[in-house]
Design a protein around this nucleic acid. Structure first.
Lengths: 355, 355
DNA sequence: CTGAAAGCGCTTACAG
DNA sequence: CTGAAAGCGCTTACAG
């Protein structure tokens, strides 16, 4: 079309690509413009073979001129890299893993990869079918954020494509496990409370099907043992990592008759629920009860009183998962390490007052 | 079945599936088993034409027997539906839109669609390139969760595939806008405070580039006007929807010298930040200052004191966005409506006490 | 180093 | 109603 005069506004629609008929630029068009074969363009794109500098230049020029972007679907179909990584998360709105996903993106996107999120909802079957779905979409690798998918499924999956999994510790070729030292975290939290003079420390655990929950409880017990405080089962109540379960747990604790001056909640969400429960019973944190969480969610900073908690960087977990995946894909050995858990003292824990 | 040795050596030493030999079941295999042509299988799969009941049965049996799942990438490439919907969110870890994404999934997944999330990070350019990326991945539609992508881009995009966008109100063919009545919400929040006897009501706005922020402020102003309270600019301070900006806003308010007994924060995150700021200055909510948020995030229930806020269901927004997208794809007219904002009185707002 | 060709798994005109 | 064929956009042995 000849240049049409627009009024005064030179609104340049994004589709103002360098004059070509078809809406979509294909590799073939690049090849034609550069005067080489499609194979050559592909090779240059993928660094699959050494190509004459001249041709390389011609191709790159053509790519820029046409604004060419390879079609990931075609790539995937043809057997090359689809440049997408499947991420199995449990819920797309998880406060904790949301941050991990962000870390994954920040690591993957600059390398041209995008992530395909699917939610397993803590359901073994759903998670397994997520794997199938991702495989059918030809992802180049799968990152599994905890969940309940059987180890065996993970291992057999790793035979096909690289796998990075968090919250477990299984080993296999092309399969990397990334996990924080939850025992240490649980220990730190409890020890902090002990150092503040508390001896009647309750523990709200996570869902005991999860290694994390088991480890955090174990850390709690170890800390007690180190301080020669006997472990009273009446002080341990099971939650499931949700706010609501924290609330319920506190109510149960409160109605049990067993007194306590501090609570270690196995994650921040349960700690928030616990804080609400305490509030409903007219108890003040930390005046009446000290409270320590686990995770250090953004909410921990902005709750009142700000929550003392164990920092295990969800973001770093994501970054490391992402970069390790890239390593596995390129046949490098991932070397990164997760930072160790750190206590973040805020205002929800205080010295035990004699009363 | 006899083990078919293909001449072209496609080494696959790993076969776990019990029911079928090949690793991946293709449409061709189904066709062969059912004794029909691939075209027919495709047609049955897509309901693209009427097929003899006999053949249909044979095909469906074969599908079940082989455990066949169509490959979305091949589908997309071939020009059919890719069964994936692109979702442009601003940040994958957004507390509010996370819930919306869940609503989208809950609506889309049962219909066999999966969502492809990309983050725009409130950046016009990034968001626009997200669109390109999604188009290149052959999504069947795009859902845009607010953001700053120009309306024009959205409109031109809608010429190619269906678009659903939240937080705006533009109209076009195959383009649906979904937005809560933020003016009403702002009005409700402010009116609630007025009814509690407050007259010096501060407002922390969102980023004023966003319609939502503008509308909520307008609702605030309307409520004041209705109550014949003059609008004092000193009481209005600009935030950007983050907790931190809420914190800063309160500090600014506090140091301005202008007294106030209540705050309407344009979203819960800023309300949480404001609550922290108040706490840091030794002010109690609601004793010294009443506080009302907007959104009704899960955190609003579990913060102390529980936050009075305006409920605009992020989840319903997602469901509606998802179902509307399905409607658009199938050339139906979306009819659903978003629920109107509701005041959720909790403990952060109270009657003004004479002091 | 670099084409030509076959093929990834599916869909859609095109002819019966 | 239903095949055969061409093609979506790319990659990868296979031969020069």
């Amino acid at each position: 079309m000849a240049s049409t005069l627009s009024k005064t506004s030179r609104s340049s629609t994004l589709k103002n690509r360098n004059t070509n008929p078809g809406e979509v630029v294909t590799l073939d068009m690049v090849a034609r413009l550069a005067g080489v074969s499609p194979s050559t363009v592909s090779r240059i794109l993928n660094g699959t073979a050494v190509v004459h500098a001249e041709k390389t230049k011609a191709v790159n020029d053509a790519i820029v001129k046409l604004g060419f972007t390879p079609n990931p679907m075609a790539r995937g179909l043809a057997g090359g890299r689809s440049l997408s990584i499947g991420v199995i998360t449990q819920a797309i709105d998880s406060p904790y893993y949301g941050i991990t996903m962000r870390g994954i993106e920040d690591e993957l996107n600059p390398s041209g990869y995008s992530s395909l999120y699917v939610s397993g909802h803590w359901n073994t079957k759903t998670e397994s079918s997520c794997v199938d779905m991702l495989l059918s979409r030809r992802v180049d690798g799968i990152i599994v954020l905890t969940g309940r998918i059987p180890d065996t499924v993970l291992k057999s999956c790793a035979k096909k494509i690289p796998v990075v999994v968090t919250g477990r510790s299984l080993k296999a070729s092309r399969l990397l496990s990334l996990t924080f030292d939850s025992i240490e975290g649980g220990r730190l939290a409890t020890q902090h409370l002990i150092e503040l003079g508390h001896r009647d420390i309750a523990c709200i655990t996570g869902n005991m099907k999860h290694p994390d929950a088991i480890d955090r409880l174990q850390g709690y017990q170890q800390a007690l043992a180190s301080a020669c405080i006997s472990n009273d089962p009446a002080l341990v109540v099971t939650g499931d990592f949700t706010e609501e379960s924290g609330l319920k747990a506190v109510k149960k604790l409160l109605s049990s008759g067993r007194t306590f001056t501090a609570i270690f909640a196995s994650n921040d969400q349960m700690a928030l629920g616990a804080a609400l429960g305490l509030h409903q019973h007219g108890l003040k944190v930390p005046k009446d009860v000290s409270l320590v969480g686990f995770d250090d969610l953004p909410a921990a900073t902005y709750t009142l009183p700000p929550l003392t908690t164990i920092h295990v960087s969800a973001y770093e977990l994501g970054r490391l998962a992402g970069s390790s995946m890239l390593d596995l894909i390129d046949n490098r050995v991932p070397v990164g390490e997760l930072p160790s858990p750190k206590l973040i003292p805020r205002e929800s824990s205080a010295f035990l007052k004699s009363r």
